Simulated scan of single mutants.
Amino acid sequence: MIYDFIVVGHGLAGAILAETLRSRGNKVLVIDEPKENSASRVAAGLLNPVAGKRFAKSWLVDTFIPAADAFYDTLEVRYGKQLYFHKLIYKIFSSIEEQNTWMAKSAGGNWSEYISATYTQSINQPDVDDPFGGIMIERGGFLHVYGMLDLLTEDLLQQNLLMPERFDISQLQLTEGGVKYKDIEAKHLVFCEGYQVINNPYFAWLPIQPTKGEVLEVQTEQNLSPECIYNKAVYVVPEGEGRFIIGATYDWRNPDEEATPQGAEELSERFRQILPQAFKITGHWAGIRPAVRDRRPLVGTHPEYMQLSVFNGMGSKGVLMAPYLSEHFADALAGQTELMPEIHISRYFSLYYDYIKHQNQQP
């Protein structure tokens, strides 16, 4: 059999792209080494339409959210299991200055679709430390990423469409009709390797910054409202019965996958600033995100080898971005549209030519 696509990597981005390509009738083979501490599997899967301290709408959020809702709804119907949880996000002001920044920002635009309330003082919810108030963000939530990946993985395995092994790039051959990997042929191959793309000789020139993130699971005697995610320097996702997921750290200096005492202490201290009470750590994980210098995804076909593409670089925004971008990329691969320039790897082609020049100068 000749496949239409080989997808290398089955984290969040690879899984959503593979599912999108399959839904269009393509024959898709996925190659992925099972790994419990991949960035996708340890992530809380947060979707937040308002970006950080800048109080700006996330890039293209009006486009991304409907596509994300439709994609996750379709999977939930297929598998008969809830995967995406629509939740309010209470963004707590850390200071009067931050409160003032929001008040000035909100005066200049229409936020009604995403902000349901602004509080200039505490909402007086028991055990929540919010003396400066905050904003209540609509249309957010979280995806059970590991649950979705498990379901899609089992589906692929049952149909013999997943090779659960490390991809050996030395076995890849570029052919006139596409690619050959061991004894498998395909018309096109897409790398969805996350930060591991830095070790890929075809795409190592892309400006990926491996960024470590650590996450805690804690147990307390209190139980915050399960209808709300809390955000103040870290996110706090209540999972019921006093259990919370807390994350995440950002560490680009030590991009390994080891959970550290320093990470646990940082997250614990941030948690105390939201919920100042005793708690017990019941889980601690670390993963590595594929961050990009301009905070835009890296999508597109190799500048020389048209059989090879990359779908990567969504960092902590994959839950929001991947459903729409996978459809957009599938359209581009089918010749039905041009990739939007903001995500196209062509913006970094100069790095590729520098990379090739350097490689040619090696003794």
Results as ranks from 00 to 15, higher is better:
residue 4 D to L: 02
residue 4 D to M: 04
residue 7 V to R: 00
residue 10 H to Y: 03
residue 14 G to T: 00
residue 22 R to K: 09
residue 30 V to F: 05
residue 31 I to G: 05
residue 33 E to T: 02
residue 35 K to V: 02
residue 39 A to H: 05
residue 40 S to A: 12
residue 47 L to A: 13
residue 48 N to W: 08
residue 49 P to T: 14
residue 49 P to I: 14
residue 54 R to G: 12
residue 55 F to E: 01
residue 61 V to W: 02
residue 64 F to T: 04
residue 70 A to R: 15
residue 71 F to R: 00
residue 72 Y to N: 02
residue 77 V to L: 14
residue 78 R to N: 06
residue 80 G to R: 06
residue 88 L to H: 15
residue 92 I to H: 02
residue 94 S to Y: 11
residue 97 E to C: 07
residue 97 E to Q: 14
residue 99 Q to L: 10
residue 99 Q to V: 06
residue 101 T to C: 08
residue 102 W to S: 07
residue 104 A to W: 11
residue 106 S to R: 10
residue 108 G to E: 06
residue 109 G to F: 11
residue 109 G to Q: 14
residue 110 N to V: 08
residue 115 I to P: 09
residue 117 A to M: 10
residue 123 I to T: 10
residue 127 D to G: 05
residue 128 V to H: 11
residue 134 G to F: 03
residue 139 R to L: 15
residue 147 G to A: 15
residue 154 E to Q: 11
residue 155 D to C: 06
residue 156 L to F: 08
residue 156 L to R: 07
residue 157 L to K: 11
residue 158 Q to G: 04
residue 159 Q to P: 11
residue 160 N to Y: 04
residue 161 L to C: 03
residue 163 M to Q: 15
residue 164 P to W: 04
residue 167 F to A: 10
residue 169 I to C: 11
residue 171 Q to W: 09
residue 171 Q to R: 14
residue 171 Q to E: 15
residue 173 Q to N: 15
residue 174 L to F: 10
residue 174 L to E: 08
residue 178 G to T: 01
residue 183 D to A: 01
residue 187 K to T: 01
residue 192 C to A: 11
residue 196 Q to V: 00
residue 197 V to P: 03
residue 202 Y to P: 05
residue 203 F to A: 06
residue 203 F to N: 02
residue 207 P to D: 04
residue 214 E to R: 10
residue 216 L to N: 04
residue 217 E to Q: 14
residue 220 T to R: 09
residue 224 L to Q: 09
residue 226 P to G: 03
residue 228 C to A: 10
residue 230 Y to R: 02
residue 231 N to D: 12
residue 231 N to K: 09
residue 234 V to F: 10
residue 234 V to L: 13
residue 237 V to T: 14
residue 238 P to D: 00
residue 244 F to Y: 13
residue 259 A to R: 04
residue 262 Q to F: 15
residue 262 Q to V: 15
residue 263 G to T: 06
residue 266 E to Y: 14
residue 266 E to S: 10
residue 267 L to E: 10
residue 272 R to L: 14
residue 274 I to Q: 09
residue 274 I to Y: 05
residue 274 I to V: 13
residue 275 L to R: 06
residue 276 P to V: 01
residue 278 A to I: 07
residue 281 I to M: 08
residue 282 T to A: 01
residue 285 W to M: 13
residue 286 A to E: 00
residue 286 A to W: 00
residue 286 A to K: 00
residue 289 R to C: 12
residue 293 R to G: 13
residue 296 R to C: 07
residue 297 P to M: 10
residue 300 G to F: 00
residue 301 T to F: 01
residue 301 T to A: 04
residue 305 Y to A: 12
residue 307 Q to I: 07
residue 314 M to C: 13
residue 320 L to S: 11
residue 321 M to W: 08
residue 321 M to R: 08
residue 324 Y to D: 04
residue 324 Y to K: 07
residue 325 L to K: 11
residue 328 H to C: 14
residue 333 L to P: 00
residue 334 A to V: 08
residue 335 G to N: 01
residue 336 Q to Y: 15
residue 339 L to W: 03
residue 339 L to P: 06
residue 342 E to N: 11
residue 343 I to N: 05
residue 346 S to V: 13
residue 347 R to K: 12
residue 349 F to Q: 00
residue 349 F to I: 01
residue 351 L to S: 04
residue 351 L to I: 03
residue 354 D to H: 07
residue 356 I to H: 01
residue 356 I to V: 12
residue 357 K to T: 14
residue 363 P to S: 11
